Amino acid sequence: MATVTIPPAEEARDVFKRLGYAIEERGSEFVAERKWRRVQVTPLCADDAKAPDEIVDYGDAGGPRLRCFVTWMDCTEELQSYLQSAKPPYDWAIIGIEGDGEFQVVHPEPGTAPI
Results as ranks from 00 to 15, higher is better:
2 A>G: 07
3 T>L: 10
3 T>E: 14
4 V>F: 10
5 T>Q: 08
5 T>S: 11
6 I>L: 13
8 P>T: 04
8 P>L: 04
10 E>G: 11
11 E>D: 14
12 A>E: 03
12 A>W: 11
13 R>Q: 08
13 R>F: 03
14 D>R: 06
16 F>Y: 09
17 K>V: 10
17 K>E: 01
17 K>L: 01
17 K>R: 15
18 R>A: 11
20 G>D: 12
21 Y>M: 03
21 Y>N: 10
23 I>N: 12
27 G>Y: 15
27 G>Q: 13
29 E>W: 12
30 F>G: 00
32 A>W: 13
32 A>C: 07
33 E>T: 09
33 E>F: 00
36 W>K: 13
36 W>R: 14
36 W>C: 03
37 R>W: 08
37 R>E: 09
38 R>M: 04
39 V>K: 08
39 V>C: 06
40 Q>V: 07
40 Q>L: 15
43 P>S: 05
45 C>R: 09
46 A>S: 10
47 D>G: 05
47 D>F: 11
49 A>R: 06
49 A>S: 03
53 D>L: 13
54 E>C: 00
55 I>T: 07
57 D>R: 14
57 D>C: 05
59 G>L: 01
61 A>I: 14
62 G>M: 02
62 G>V: 01
64 P>H: 04
64 P>I: 06
65 R>K: 12
65 R>E: 07
67 R>M: 03
68 C>H: 09
68 C>A: 14
70 V>Q: 00
71 T>K: 03
73 M>F: 02
74 D>S: 02
74 D>E: 05
74 D>C: 00
75 C>T: 13
77 E>Q: 15
81 S>R: 10
83 L>D: 01
83 L>N: 09
83 L>G: 00
84 Q>A: 04
86 A>M: 11
86 A>R: 15
86 A>P: 01
90 Y>R: 09
94 I>W: 08
94 I>S: 01
95 I>L: 10
96 G>Q: 02
96 G>P: 06
97 I>K: 10
98 E>K: 12
99 G>P: 03
99 G>Q: 08
99 G>L: 06
102 E>Q: 13
103 F>I: 01
104 Q>K: 09
105 V>S: 05
105 V>I: 11
106 V>S: 02
106 V>F: 11
107 H>G: 05
107 H>T: 14
107 H>E: 11
111 G>N: 05
112 T>I: 08
112 T>L: 10
113 A>K: 12
